Simulated scan of single mutants.
Amino acid sequence: MVSASATDVSVLSAALATPYDSRGNVDESKIEAVVDSYISRGVEGMYCCGSSGEGLLLSADERVRVVAAAARASDDRVPVIAHVGALSTREAIDIAVRSEAEGAVAVSMVPPIYYSYGPDAIAAHYRAVMDAVSLPMILYNIPQFTGTEFDPASAADLLADERVIGVKQTAHNMFHLERMRHAHPDKAFIGGFDEVFVAAIAAGASGAIGTTIGFQIELFRAAREFVGRGDLVAAQRVQARINEVVAELVDIDVFPAAKHVSGMPFGGLGDCRAPFRPLTAEGRARADRVADLVAAHVEATENERGDGRR
């Protein structure tokens, strides 16, 4: 098995929603169908069992099954990253070791949550997991959920470890992103909030892992292309389209609504697990209209990309 490098994960990766069957169990065949479809449409990486994938609502066994199914479907075409964050170091190690055996090329973790841990305990938690596997680590910075923020000072010790290849920056602080990248130019800084994708690229992000990337990959690829051309106005226009979708999903109920939209081409992925509430009939109808909005935005954006190539 080949581990990922910072360059390998500097791509547009879908934060996979975890499909369930009619009994609420992980549906591995549907995971494979989603991954294959995403790759065929241009998604460049898969991130399993993060926030969008309800990772902390799954058992360790279920999380490993998700990774295994994604890796089978990918068949080395794109990198598969396993989020292995857990309440205890022991459980995180268990998930990481088994995810490596099932085909993940990198692991990622939120810092330990619930108890208030000091920086030494957090660093030791990450190093214990890295010691247990041969895979590289991506720090998952999502302070609004964990209460811990990786910034240029607090992340410096871990970023100095060669086994840490980057940071998933699911935070709006672009100043911190730029300062971390300035101090560690060999690492991958990966945007985690779809609504600031263009801003993150401008601040130095080299890729993205996002909730809506799977079902509007064409917009993210176009925005990246426009930034590369130096056409900031076009990039901003595409970002506004991405944000119109994000804003509507947030207003409905972001994770259940995004999962509904993600699942529409596949006959549904099931509801998010409790304590998430199922979407109401009104919420489902609104989410259906989001899919129509995405289709309209993709068509308009593809036309613009075509005009720019002529």
Rank of each mutant, 00 (worst) to 15 (best):
A4N: 04
A4L: 08
A6W: 04
A6C: 13
A6T: 08
V9I: 14
V11S: 06
S13W: 02
A15V: 07
S22F: 10
R23I: 02
N25G: 09
D27K: 03
D27I: 04
S29L: 10
I31Q: 11
A33N: 10
V34C: 14
V35L: 02
R41T: 10
G50K: 00
G53Y: 01
E54R: 09
L57D: 09
S59V: 07
R65E: 13
V66K: 04
V67P: 06
A69R: 03
R72H: 06
S74N: 12
D76C: 13
I81K: 03
H83K: 08
V84M: 04
S88G: 06
S88N: 08
S88H: 12
R90G: 01
A92Y: 01
D94T: 11
D94L: 11
I95N: 02
R98G: 06
E100G: 05
A101Q: 14
E102I: 05
G103L: 05
G103C: 04
V107C: 13
S108P: 07
S116M: 14
A121I: 00
A121H: 15
I122A: 01
A123C: 08
A124F: 00
R127A: 04
R127G: 04
A132R: 04
L135F: 09
L135E: 03
I138E: 00
Y140N: 04
Y140I: 03
Y140Q: 05
N141G: 02
I142H: 12
Q144E: 13
P152D: 01
A153D: 15
A155P: 00
V164A: 04
V164R: 05
I165P: 13
Q169W: 05
M174I: 03
L177E: 04
M180S: 07
H182N: 15
H184E: 07
D186M: 10
K187W: 05
D194C: 09
V198L: 03
V198S: 01
I201F: 10
A202K: 12
A203C: 09
S206D: 05
G207Q: 01
G207I: 03
G210F: 01
Q216H: 13
I217Y: 07
F220Q: 02
R229S: 14
G230S: 12
V238A: 10
Q239A: 10
A247Y: 09
E248A: 15
I252P: 00
D253G: 11
P256G: 09
K259M: 09
V261I: 12
M264I: 06
G268Y: 06
L269K: 01
A274H: 14
R277P: 00
R277I: 06
E282C: 08
R284L: 12
A287W: 04
A287F: 03
D288S: 11
A291H: 11
L293A: 12
V294L: 11
A295P: 02
A295I: 07
A296T: 15
V298D: 09
E299S: 15
N303C: 10
E304M: 13
E304Y: 07
D307F: 13
D307Y: 12
D307I: 12
R309L: 15
